[in-house]
């Protein structure tokens, strides 16, 4: 698999570390924070089709990327810095 890093260009999968879904960190002050954190940390959808996930360019620019990938074909549809 090849991931188009917005900083380094298209790079081989072996340079990256996978880290699951880009779930926003819940509001820790919310009344139901424990439930929200539980869901954010443990509950994952497993879609067949386009899917967003986080990849860390560990052996590259150290950028955290949000990658769009089709789970059926492994086609990488795009990648952007996760914080933007």
């Amino acid at each position: 698999m090849r991931i188009p890093c917005p900083y380094c260009g298209e790079r081989d999968l072996s340079e990256f570390v996978y880290n699951g879904d880009p779930v926003p960190r819940p509001d820790p002050a919310a009344a139901d924070a424990p439930r929200r954190f539980y869901e954010a940390v443990y509950l994952r959808d497993n879609p067949a089709g386009p899917h967003q996930e986080l990849w860390y360019h560990a052996n590259g620019c150290r950028g955290w990327l949000r990658v769009d990938r089709d789970t059926r074909t492994h086609d990488v549809l795009g990648a952007a810095f996760a914080g933007t």
Binding site: N19, Y56, F81, A82
Partner: peptide
């Protein structure tokens, strides 16, 4: 390092 970068960037 990875954890800190995640916190900082994401």
């Amino acid at each position: 390092m990875q954890h800190l970068e995640h916190a900082r960037q994401v």
